[in-house]
Nucleic acid binder design. Structure first.
Length: 509
RNA sequence: GCCCGGUUCGUCUAGCGGUUUAGGACAUCGCCCUCUCACGGCGAAGAUCACGGGUUCGAAUCCCGUACCGGGUACCA
């Protein structure tokens, strides 16, 4: 069995241009490179392509680095900054010039535009050749010290091809490529050139990047040939689209890695989701929720799809919930705590009267983990632990507590809870802290018994007893398990909230 | 315009000439679990495999054309 991607340790790189935040499409390219490197036991490198001084910013560099770190996709070697390698680029440029593989082109811009227009009018592709600018004019321009660019002298008549790991063999006629510009008039090198020079210098063996680069690839292959080196292998990745099948952009919602972080998305969930956009393991049925270890083990570039994929935000949310539930209790607390601290500032988060200490916090967070799809949602689900409700769901109030006998039943329920409390503590062996889930469980059962009895004697369903209490205590009809919540809140607080709600119900109109 | 690429349930996908009444996942709907909401379990609905021609005993799978979508067409990356 020959596997084209597993045995040889590969040196790959992620090469973003720092013109903004890290887009999820780029993040996926980074991820695929990372997975491939790990899968083959190779190296994952980072190169900042900042040769466009107009658009590159330090802030973008910082932001990209931060996002990469957040995702855990850190490079195995120090990041390479292209602007710091001007000497190397200049040297390579001089080599090409000296070998006659590149030349100074003096054709003025308006002349170029004219040629382009002519080609378009004729319905053919425009590809520049040095013969298009008469030699004598070029000589005159040179002597006059006119501006020029440096172009690669593309061998005419040939076909340049490469075998893409994803798209297969792609052939391009050199005459459709033409003599492309590799350096600006001021001598600063351009993308296709620096890309090749640096990939050669960094010993890159496989280039994996977005599909928008396929048309650049033949030019790069030509450059590799000009330098007399074997081109790396190539793998291009299909684009990520929005729900309207257009290229994913800001108007589709979050597109930046940093935005997903602040939405309460776990990096492992984002990565897992992104991995499954355009790639799938070989089994027809498999658990889609995977760790990086599992992804690394199963990942293979030759199973990447050719067609673009729509970014399904709903599925990301589901996957995030799955990853939240798979986190250990300690890990979960560590992730949720900052969210809670920001949402409920001050002494409330740890050591206040309602939620005391980390053990309490941990217990309370655990109550919500099955109902939260993002870290942010923990704040929504647990808000009543940090402050008593100031208002109760109006629809529920009218449905549950409109009748005077219903309000009286709520008060009676409150009295039963208060009366049962201490006995339940004693019987369950639970003290001030939730030392064990078993004891808390026992406390809940002991508390539940007399309320069950009450519902029977009152000839109402148990829900008719529990729901009003839930409403009183949380302000809502949906919450984490009621009895667990009561215990964390404490007897006095529960009593206070029940009375406040009952009083409000009486004023209902 | 020209060059290149893509097209399987709403979405992500499995499928590489017969094992397919096209499998799984998200979302949707129903049932179960149940103090609510979730989680979990079970089930349903959902794809004339873009369309039209071929090749073949046989095609979602191979070939050609058309349509639609996308990428590129820079002294950007």
């Amino acid at each position: 069995m020959t596997d084209s991607t597993s045995p040889r340790p590969e040196r790959v790189r992620f090469a973003p241009s720092p013109t903004g935040y890290l887009h999820v499409g780029s993040a996926r390219a980074a991820l695929f490179n990372f997975l491939h490197a790990r899968h083959t036991g190779g190296k994952f490198l980072l190169r900042i392509e900042d040769t466009d001084l107009e658009r590159s910013t330090d802030d973008a560099v910082r932001q990209i680095l931060e996002s990469m770190k957040w995702m855990g996709l850190e490079a195995d070697e120090p990041a390479v900054y292209q602007t710091k390698r001007v000497d190397l680029h200049a040297r390579r440029l001089e080599e090409l010039l000296a070998a006659g593989k590149a030349y100074r082109d003096y054709c003025p811009k308006d002349r170029l535009d004219q040629l382009r227009d002519e080609a378009r009018a004729a319905g053919t592709i425009f590809s520049y050749r040095e013969t298009m600018f008469p030699a004598e004019e070029a000589l005159a321009a040179q002597e006059a010290g006119a501006p020029f660019v440096i172009r690669f002298r593309t061998p005419p008549g040939e076909v340049t091809a490469f075998n893409d790991l994803v798209y297969g063999r792609i052939e391009t006629a050199n005459d459709a490529i033409g003599d492309f510009v590799i350096a600006r008039g001021d001598g600063s090198p351009l993308y296709n050139f620096t890309n090749v020079v640096d990939d050669v210098d960094m010993g890159i063996t496989l280039v994996c990047r977005g599909e928008d680069h396929v048309s650049n690839t033949p030019k790069q292959v030509l450059l590799y040939q000009a330098f007399g080196v074997q081109p790396p292998r190539f793998a291009h990745l299909p684009l990520i689209l929005g729900t309207d099948k257009q290229k994913l952009s800001k108007r589709h919602g979050a597109t930046g890695v940093d935005q997903f972080a602040s939405l309460g998305i776990l990096p492992e969930a984002l990565l897992n989701f992104l991995a499954l956009l355009g790639w799938a393991p070989s089994e027809a049925e498999f658990d889609e929720v995977m760790t990086m270890e599992e992804l690394t083990k199963r990942f293979s570039l030759d199973r990447v799809n050719k067609s673009p994929a729509v970014f399904d935000h709903e599925k990301l949310m589901w996957m995030n919930g799955m990853h939240i539930r798979r986190l250990s209790a300690e890990e979960l607390v560590a992730r949720v705590l900052p969210v809670l601290a920001e949402r409920f500032p001050g002494e409330h988060v740890s050591g206040n009267a309602l939620v005391q200490g980390d053990a309490m916090l941990r217990g309370v967070i655990d109550l919500a983990k099955e109902r939260c799809r993002t870290l942010i949602e923990f704040g929504d689900a647990l808000d009543f632990f940090f402050a008593a409700p100031t208002a109760w769901d109006d629809k529920a109030m009218r449905k549950l507590l409109a009748a005077p006998e219903a309000v009286e039943r709520l008060r009676e329920t409150g009295r039963i809870i208060a009366a049962t409390w201490e006995g339940a503590v004693a019987k369950s062996g639970i003290a001030g802290q939730p030392e064990s889930a078993e004891r808390l469980e026992a406390w809940c059962h002991t508390m539940e018994e007399p309320l069950r009895a009450f519902s029977e004697s009152a000839a109402v369903k148990f829900g008719a007893i529990a729901q009003p209490v839930r409403l009183a205590v949380t302000g809502r009809t949906a919450s984490p398990p009621l009895f667990h919540g009561l215990w964390f809140l404490g007897a006095e607080e529960v009593a206070r909230r029940i009375e406040a709600c009952a009083a409000a119900a009486e004023k209902l109109e």
